[in-house]
């Protein structure tokens, strides 16, 4: 009897979990992480980085548009989704960079506080 109940529980949980779908924000976040990884990758040449960024940028633009126009996320948005829309410039990097007319890398670095002024005002100290 216990075995039967255990099996039924496994089957039911499988059926319930199979309805879960990937959120458009999650897909966007994965692509965004790839781009940031590419920006910070020291092992590739500048030309290679530029070429690969161009391709990734178009893919990220599509995903950003899909996320912005996705009406399904209006219903019960999770914490990640709410936070993503609170920080438009960080979430929608391609849109933000086109709006500011700056490269993606500059837009992202500026947004997290790595501006030229900030870096220039720092000094090397020894603790």
């Amino acid at each position: 009897m216990l075995n039967l109940i255990r099996n039924l529980t496994v089957i039911l949980s499988f059926i319930i979990c199979s309805h879960a779908n990937a959120n458009s924000i999650d897909t966007l976040e994965r692509e965004r992480a790839k781009i940031l990884n590419l920006i910070l990758d020291k092992s590739i040449s500048i030309g290679e980085r530029k070429k690969r960024l161009e391709i990734s940028k178009m893919r990220l633009l599509d995903l950003e548009r899909m996320t912005i126009n996705d009406k399904n996320i209006n219903k019960n948005p999770n914490h990640r989704t709410i936070k993503a829309f609170e920080n438009f410039d960080l979430t929608f990097l391609v849109h933000s960079s086109l709006e500011k007319e700056k490269p993606i890398s500059v837009t992202w670095l500026e947004k997290i506080g790595f501006t030229t002024e900030n870096l220039m005002s720092t000094r090397v100290t020894r603790k």
């Binding site: 996320i73 709410i82 829309f85 438009f88």
Partner: peptide, 29 residues
């Protein structure tokens, strides 16, 4: 609040549609 942010995102995205088109025309990919 979330819907406000989303509507703002939609408006901002729409306002740069022409820039996106322009950028896509010059883009290598």
């Amino acid at each position: 609040e979330f819907l406000n942010n989303k509507n703002n995102a939609l408006k901002r995205a729409e306002s740069i549609d022409f820039k996106i088109l322009d950028s896509a025309a010059h883009s290598m990919s």
